[in-house]
């Protein structure tokens, strides 16, 4: 059994569009090296030249942030699930409510008008 790795949309150009790829390794660092052998360039987007995880990249092993598990030295086992995500303010803004599905159409219409207005303001 291997380790399943979820790839965010912005990095799928390195995986031929695949959302999920598989790899092996005893640590996250090993896993990324293994992935890079098949998906060249991927590792370079996640790890800085100094050899640390990129500030705006979050990697989770079984839903837990690897920065608290040893970062690139975090231990992995077969069957683990690794998720890579860009750091967004989504965590924060996200603490906004969901648009009601029923009202989504209407909300989108109003909002895109407002969006144009906001874009106008921003210009």
């Amino acid at each position: 059994m291997a380790i399943e790795v979820r790839i965010p949309t912005i990095l799928r150009s390195y995986t031929g569009g695949a959302k999920v790829v598989e790899g092996t390794g005893d640590t996250l660092g090993d896993l990324l090296a293994d992935l890079d052998s098949r998906h060249a360039g991927l590792r370079g987007r996640l790890v800085t030249e100094a050899g640390a995880l990129h500030r705006f990249v979050n990697v989770y092993v079984n839903d837990e942030d690897v920065r608290f598990l040893g970062a690139l030295d975090a231990k992995l086992s077969d069957g683990d699930s690794v998720t890579i995500l860009p750091a967004v303010a989504g965590g924060a803004f996200g603490f906004a409510a969901a648009a009601a599905i029923a009202q989504h159409g209407a909300a989108t219409a109003i909002a895109s008008h407002a969006g144009r207005r906001a874009a106008g303001v921003a210009r």
Binding site: F93, A96, A97, A98, A99, A100, Q103, A107, T108, I110, A111, S112, A114, G115, A118
Partner: peptide, 10 residues
């Protein structure tokens, strides 16, 4: 200033 995809209650 808020993203448009928030609930109407908000």
């Amino acid at each position: 200033v808020m993203p448009e995809n928030v609930s109407t209650e908000r």
